[in-house]
Amino acid sequence: MNREEIKQILPHREPMLLVDEMTIDENHVAHAQYHVTGEEFFLKGHFPNEPIVPGVIQCEIMAQSCALLMKDDLAGKLTLYTAINNVRFKNLLHPGDTAEIEAKLTYRKLNIYVCEAKLSVGGKLCAMGELSFALIPDTRENK
């Protein structure tokens, strides 16, 4: 699934669409990629002359990969964070890096979805954690 196909599923748009490619394997594990170009808005002040992708943005990259796991339930819905648990940041994410995300759904009940996700670069773990989401009706008028 490429960026245009991802846009058919996720409501996120530039500059906050943070998944370039995604596949789901036979075990229903999502494998996604996001290339850090260096032009992202969040790098301009984080930090001047030393751009590093903020941890919260790494969580968002993982979250969007998780949301794609729910693609069959996403029509007419928005995914909102409900919790971020046990997140650890192990290594830095820099411009030029391609983040590789692995995400799996570990629990679902009512409109709550719980996923485990990891973000790595070249096999080196940068971030990991458990992310929870609620699916709510998308009531936007201009989608």
Binding site: T82, K109, N111, I112, V114, S132, A134
Partner: peptide, 10 residues
Amino acid sequence: DSLDVVEISM
């Protein structure tokens, strides 16, 4: 809230 109930259940 609903998340609390689901997390307790989980």
